[in-house]
Design a protein around this nucleic acid. Structure first.
Lengths: 134, 134
DNA sequence: ATGCAAAATGTAATATTATAACATTACACT
DNA sequence: AGTGTAATGTTATAATATTACATTTTGCAT
């Protein structure tokens, strides 16, 4: 059996649960406020849980927004590299998958004699829903 | 004549100058400490200058590092979208240019019925120099 | 040249995001 | 039971960024 939620500790499960039930990325302090009733009192507890969840690939950070999302892909390989579509209207986030990005970026890097290791891609625009409304 | 440094105000010129003389991205408060002798006293003065410089494309923000770099491209069109190679060893940054990225991301977005507007791409790895050393 | 509007500035306070430091507890493995 | 590692709890503080408001400078239409 690989890494599943079963391996997670109480705090990690609590933080992951909140993120999984959210339709948008959440900020660390928003998570904190949401779970103070569950015994988590300090920012550090949230950040530590997030660090671990990110490390095992269950959560990704949206760097440009200082926000965090639960990963919906079973056994996500994006422990390090991440690619998102971010809606500027409703803040919803879709994670891009597939190795074509990986190989594309490797090539881009090679052109500059750069040794590609990982990446962070954030594409901004309008999601399908918001396109229709606007 | 387009937008050049000539149009910049004192604070903006000061901040841009520090960034242009740096070989790596700088953090806002590092910039502040470096230019306090030049009459800039508060974080806000730095952030305001940065905002303007980013708006006109002379400076870009490295989101994952909360850092700022001066753009080396004359008349950079990356007022909104940015693409960087970031060396994990020496922290140097190279900006990727060219519209192929633009069109590539548009296609990726289309697949998800997403309306592409702009992007932020950060590729991490080893730059040419550091590759040789390691 | 003068007066108006927009932009930029100065300053203080505060909000937001994240980590340091250190003592303690839980748990797997021998 | 003893040991080592990871996780936790708690307090304080560092680092990053913005709000609010009073003032000054600048561009430019009259």
């Amino acid at each position: 059996m690989g890494l599943t939620s079963d391996n997670l500790t109480k705090n990690q499960k609590t933080v992951l649960g909140v993120l999984e039930n959210s339709s948008e990325p959440m900020k660390a302090y928003t998570i904190l406020y949401d779970i103070q009733k569950m015994g988590i009192k300090s920012p550090l507890q949230v950040y530590r849980a997030l660090d671990k969840l990110i490390e095992i690939g269950k959560v990704h950070k949206i760097e440009s927004r200082n926000s965090y999302v639960a990963c919906k892909h079973e056994g996500c390989n994006a422990k390090t590299s991440t690619s998102f579509l971010i809606c500027e209207n409703c803040d919803s986030v879709t994670e891009l998958t597939g190795n074509n990005l990986f190989s594309y970026f490797s090539k881009q890097a090679e052109k500059n004699n750069f040794n590609y290791k990982k990446h962070n891609l954030e594409i901004f625009g309008l999601c399908e829903n918001c396109k229709l409304k606007n």
